[in-house]
Design a protein around this nucleic acid. Structure first.
Lengths: 338, 338
DNA sequence: TATTATTTTGACACCGGTATCATTAACGTT
DNA sequence: AACGTTAATGATACCGGTGTCAAAATAATA
C-alpha cells in the first residue's frame, strides 16, 4: 500500500509524466487515445495527485479562507456547510476564520492570514461583505474573493446579493395585513449594511400603506439578545406601546419575547413579535417566531463556485447573483386585537 | 515584494540552506552562533517558510481534521474556536468536517478524508469520541488522533475526558436541595456515550439522598428540541407529574419549556426545568435555563495541544486530561411549592 | 601532541508535481 | 512528393523545502 505518484501512472500508461499532468489538468492538445490510456491508469492505480506537490509547482495552495464575525453564529453553520460542499467537490480546502469585525488590526490580521497561509481565495460574510476599506485592501492585493449576502453590487468582486429590503418589506406588509398599525422596529448593528436595508424595507411598506413613520417606534439594537431586551423595555414602556414589534434579527426578537413575558403580556394575542434570519432559536422559543429565511447554504454554494472560477481564471458570465428569501410565518404573529 | 525563500535566508546568513532548515525545525546540533545569525536573517527578511514545500519534502500536510456531528451545533462553535487557537499558533490548519454519525458509510468517508487530504491528525467530538468501531479503524490506520469529551480513558489515543456523571449528580443534587422529590429525567441520544453518564449521575444522586428511582419519570430523548417536547408531553401527562424535569441537554429542556407554556404551567414556580451544555439558547429563553457549562474551548485547546505533540512524536507525559464543568444556576430552577 | 570521538556544517539528491521548450508526429497545400 | 503548419509528446529544469551522508570543525582522550 505505498503511495502512487505521477511517475507510476506515467509508467503504467507508457507516457511521460508531463502528459499525465496534462490529462490531470484538462489541458488541450492531448489526443483522445492517450487521454484514455492515462485515465485508465488513474483508475487502475487509484491515483490521487498530491496537493502539496501540485501547489508547490504551480504556486497554489488550494486553500480558501472563510471570514466571519465571531459572535455572530446564527448563519455561520449553514454557510460553512454550503461552502464545504463545493470546496470538497472542487478539490479545495476551506479554512474557517472567525474574527472580530471591530478589531482595530483587522486588516493586518487578514492580510497576514492571506500571505502566511497562501490562500488562493477568500470568502466574506456579513458584515465583512460590505466593509469598504476591507474590500479596497483586497482589491489592491489582487487576491480573488467573493462576498456573501452583500447589499450592493458596486464591487469588483463576485458577489451573492441579498435583497433584505424586499424581505423586510414583505414582513412589514404581513404585520400590516394582520391589522397592525403601530409597529415597532428594532434596528440592527450599525456596522452591518443589512441594517439599513431592513429598515428601508420597513419604511417603504409603511409609506406604501399610508401609515406614518413614528419616531418613537424606531429603536436601536445591535443584533444580540440583550440589545433586544433593552429595545423592548424601551418600546413597551411607551404610553402607547406598539402592538407589533419587528426586530431586525431573531436574537433580538427573542429578547423582546423575554421582556414581554416578564411584563405578563400575552403572546401573540397582545403583541406580535417577528424577527429575521430564521436562526435555530426561532423554532425553539415559545411562541415560535415568524421570521425570514435566507438561503445561506445556497448563497455559500454560489459564492464558492464563482470564487473558484475566479481563481482558475475561467470566464465568468455573471458576477452578481441574487437569491430568494422567504417569509416563514409561525406562531408569534397574530391579528391585531382592539 | 517578491517571495523570500530559504535560499535567500541562507545567502543572507551565509550558511547552507540545510542549516537554515535546521534552525527552522529546532533540530539539535546547531551552534548558538549560527542559530542567532539565521534567526536574525528570519526577521530581517521577514521570512515565512512555504508550507507546501515543507509538506512535500517531509511528507506532512500541516492539516488537522475536526470531525463533528452535523445537526449538533451547540458546542461546535466553541470547539472550533478553541481548536483554531492552538492550530494557528502551532502552524497547522484546521479542516472542519461535519458528518452524520448515523451515516452507513461513515468509516469509508473518514478514511477517504484522511488519505485524500493527507491529514496529519484528526480530532473527534461526541459522539465520535466514543464510537468503538471508528476508534478501532483509526488505531489500525496509525493516524494520530485526539478525542474531545470522551467518557472513558480506555483508548490508545490522547483524550480530554469529561466527567458528565459528576455534573449530572450535582445538578440533581441542586434540584433535591430545592425540595424536589419527583424529578423527571429525559435521556439523551442513545448513540452518545454521555447519555449513560448523565443518567448515572442522576440515579446516584437520587439513591444517595434516599429517593426512589421511579420508572415513569425516566423518558427517552434524542438531544433535539422536538424529542424534548415529546418527552415533556409524556411526563406532564402523568397523573402525578414531576415537579422538576432534568433534560439531558438544553435543546430538550427548551422543548419541555414550550410544552409547559402551552399547558399554562407557571415557570419556574410550578415546574423547575434544567438542562445541560449551556447552549446559547439557555440564556435566550424565558425563564433562562439552569444548566451545566462544559469548558469546550479549553477542551479543544488541550486536545489539539496533545494531538500536535503526538504528530511531532514528542514525548507526552499525560494522555488523558480531565476538565471541570460548572453548574450555572439561572431562573428556571426554583424551590418546590406544595 | 597525536589520536579518536563528537559536533557542526554543507553538497546534493529527492519529494511529486508543473513550465518551458525542443522534438516528433500528423495534417494540409501546392 | 516535398513542403510548411499545427498538434502531440517528452526531456529536463524547477518550485522550496527536507533527508542522507560525508566533510570539516571542535572536543575528548590517550
Amino acid at each position: 500500500m505505498q503511495k502512487i505518484t505521477i511517475n507510476d501512472v506515467a509508467k503504467y500508461a507508457a507516457v511521460s509524466k508531463k502528459t499525465v499532468s496534462r490529462v490531470l489538468n484538462n489541458e488541450a492538445n492531448v489526443s483522445d487515445k492517450t487521454m484514455l490510456k492515462v485515465k485508465e491508469a488513474f483508475v487502475a492505480l487509484s491515483y490521487r495527485p498530491n496537493p502539496q506537490a501540485r501547489g508547490l509547482a504551480s504556486n497554489q495552495s488550494f486553500l480558501i479562507g472563510l471570514v466571519y464575525d465571531n459572535p455572530n453564529k446564527s448563519f455561520v453553520s449553514a454557510i460553512q456547510t454550503g461552502a464545504l460542499e463545493i470546496c470538497n467537490q472542487q478539490g479545495y480546502h476551506l479554512l474557517i476564520h472567525p474574527t472580530d469585525h471591530e478589531s482595530p488590526d483587522l486588516l493586518d490580521n487578514l492580510m497576514q492570514l492571506i500571505t502566511q497561509s497562501q490562500l488562493d481565495g477568500l470568502v466574506l460574510t456579513p458584515p465583512f461583505s460590505d466593509m469598504k476599506n476591507l474590500l479596497k485592501m483586497l482589491d489592491e492585493s489582487k487576491i480573488p474573493y467573493a462576498r456573501i449576502a452583500a447589499t450592493t453590487d458596486k464591487s469588483t468582486a463576485v458577489s451573492v446579493i441579498s435583497n433584505d429590503k424586499k424581505s423586510a418589506y414583505e414582513m412589514t406588509q404581513h404585520l400590516i395585513s394582520l391589522g397592525h398599525v403601530d409597529i415597532g422596529f428594532i434596528l440592527g448593528h450599525p456596522h452591518h449594511a443589512v441594517t439599513a436595508q431592513r429598515y428601508n424595507g420597513y419604511k417603504k411598506a409603511l409609506s406604501d400603506n399610508g401609515l406614518a413613520l413614528k419616531k418613537q417606534y424606531i429603536v436601536e439594537g445591535r443584533f444580540d439578545f440583550s440589545s433586544g431586551e433593552k429595545a423592548a423595555r424601551n418600546l413597551l414602556g411607551l404610553k402607547k406601546p406598539p402592538t407589533a414589534i419587528f426586530a431586525s434579527n431573531d436574537h433580538m426578537a427573542a429578547g423582546v419575547m423575554k421582556v414581554a413575558n416578564q411584563k405578563n403580556i400575552l403572546l401573540p394575542s397582545q403583541l406580535s413579535i417577528v424577527g429575521f434570519d430564521d436562526s435555530p432559536i426561532s423554532e425553539h422559543i415559545w411562541p415560535s417566531l415568524t421570521t425570514v429565511r435566507q438561503p445561506f447554504k445556497l448563497m455559500a454554494n454560489k459564492a464558492i463556485e464563482m470564487l473558484i472560477k475566479c481563481i482558475r481564471k475561467e470566464p465568468l458570465e455573471i458576477k452578481f447573483q441574487e437569491t430568494e428569501s422567504i417569509l416563514i410565518v409561525r406562531e408569534s404573529s397574530a391579528p391585531h386585537q382592539n
